[in-house]
Computed example of a mutant assay.
Amino acid sequence: MKHRSYYAPHGGHPPQTQLLSDRAVFTEAYAVIPKGVFGDIVTSNLPFWHDTRLWVLARPLSGFAETFSQYIMEVAPGGGSERPELDPAAEGVLFVVEGEMTLTLAGERHHMMPGGYAFIPPGSDWQLRNESAAPVRFHWVRKAFEFVDGLEVPKAFVTNENDIAPVEMPDTEGRWATTRFVDPADVRHDMHVNIVTFQPGGVIPFDETHVMEHGLYVLEGKAVYHLNQDWVEVEAGDFMWLRAFCPQACYAGGPGPFRYLLYKDVNRHPALRLGSR
């Protein structure tokens, strides 16, 4: 299996000598949460999760991005949950960035390592346990599944990004590619969580402006991102949070690949009444 590099926060606390200014920004169109923010004092706990803490990267906010939440979970050895998801309408994606864990899904055990990816449909019976000797850190993306009459709920699956060939974007000579875990034509799915890779010098050559909301967690490398009318530098461990229609483009700075975990909502009619999603 090819080795991949994924950035994962470890917490801690900055010294009193550190400067207060940082790269964190929250605007009406986007937010950037730099990796230095993920210290011990901003962690949370969840009911029925043991020996576990988490950093909340995104949650639905009125007038901003409203479709998803995203966490970085840190589960100590022996920790986990027998009741991880309390909302029967929530679907989820898990993506492991460091360590190992055991996901039990509908009674079947899955040993997940870095690069491991699981899609968990709403109403699933699942449990998670860290049976290793070191902490495991993983992303958990949650969305209220949008049921459609006559359309079945997609099935659960577990895989690893190393087992999936990236798809090159047309006319980019391989400088821009996407690792897709779900067929874009499969309209049963109402969200995609993919990995986007840019080789050094690769670009999004125009300001994308679209209805999909985004969460972008930088797994590796660095880049300059154009968000709305601002240029911001981002690096491994940073999180970008984009509301619908925020213009976005980027330039990968090198020296290695620039890679991020990308959430977007797809394949559903936009709600025509506020609060009805």
Score class of each variant (00 low, 15 high):
218 V>K: 00
198 F>W: 11
194 N>H: 13
209 T>W: 05
177 A>M: 15
171 D>S: 05
209 T>Q: 12
216 L>E: 05
182 V>W: 02
166 P>L: 07
197 T>M: 05
224 V>D: 11
178 T>M: 15
221 G>F: 00
168 E>A: 14
191 M>W: 03
208 E>Q: 13
180 R>N: 12
188 R>N: 04
162 N>D: 15
241 W>K: 03
168 E>G: 06
195 I>R: 02
183 D>Q: 04
236 A>F: 05
232 V>N: 04
239 F>R: 00
177 A>S: 15
217 Y>A: 01
210 H>E: 15
190 D>L: 01
213 E>H: 07
191 M>H: 10
219 L>I: 09
231 W>D: 12
235 E>K: 11
167 V>E: 15
215 G>Y: 03
172 T>H: 05
226 H>I: 12
192 H>S: 13
244 A>H: 14
236 A>G: 08
228 N>I: 01
237 G>K: 00
196 V>Y: 02
228 N>F: 11
230 D>R: 06
201 G>I: 11
238 D>H: 05
167 V>G: 09
224 V>L: 15
190 D>M: 03
220 E>I: 02
173 E>M: 01
219 L>N: 01
234 V>Y: 01
244 A>W: 09
225 Y>N: 01
214 H>K: 10
198 F>G: 01
204 I>R: 08
215 G>E: 09
175 R>L: 08
192 H>K: 10
229 Q>W: 06
206 F>G: 10
206 F>M: 15
205 P>A: 15
187 V>A: 06
215 G>L: 10
221 G>L: 02
225 Y>K: 01
215 G>H: 06
240 M>E: 03
225 Y>P: 00
232 V>Q: 08
220 E>A: 01
163 D>C: 09
205 P>G: 10
171 D>A: 09
204 I>A: 14
167 V>P: 05
166 P>K: 07
172 T>V: 08
193 V>F: 05
185 A>W: 05
175 R>K: 12
163 D>K: 08
243 R>T: 15
210 H>Y: 10
220 E>D: 07
219 L>M: 09
238 D>F: 01
242 L>D: 01
201 G>F: 13
230 D>I: 06
241 W>D: 06
219 L>K: 00
207 D>K: 11
232 V>C: 06
172 T>M: 08
182 V>N: 02
167 V>S: 12
164 I>N: 00
212 M>A: 15
185 A>R: 09
223 A>G: 10
241 W>Q: 04
217 Y>F: 12
209 T>N: 11
185 A>E: 10
166 P>N: 10
211 V>I: 13
165 A>R: 08
167 V>K: 14
199 Q>Y: 09
168 E>Q: 11
185 A>G: 05
210 H>W: 06
212 M>R: 11
174 G>Q: 05
216 L>T: 02
213 E>T: 11
242 L>K: 03
197 T>Y: 02
238 D>Y: 03
237 G>W: 00
241 W>L: 11
181 F>N: 00
211 V>L: 12
208 E>T: 14
168 E>W: 13
186 D>R: 05
237 G>P: 00
215 G>P: 03
205 P>M: 11
195 I>M: 13
225 Y>R: 02
163 D>M: 10
225 Y>M: 09
212 M>G: 14
232 V>E: 07
189 H>T: 06
238 D>C: 07
207 D>E: 13
182 V>E: 06
213 E>R: 04
221 G>R: 00
173 E>K: 02
243 R>P: 02
210 H>M: 09
238 D>S: 08
201 G>Q: 08
197 T>E: 12
169 M>N: 11
240 M>D: 02
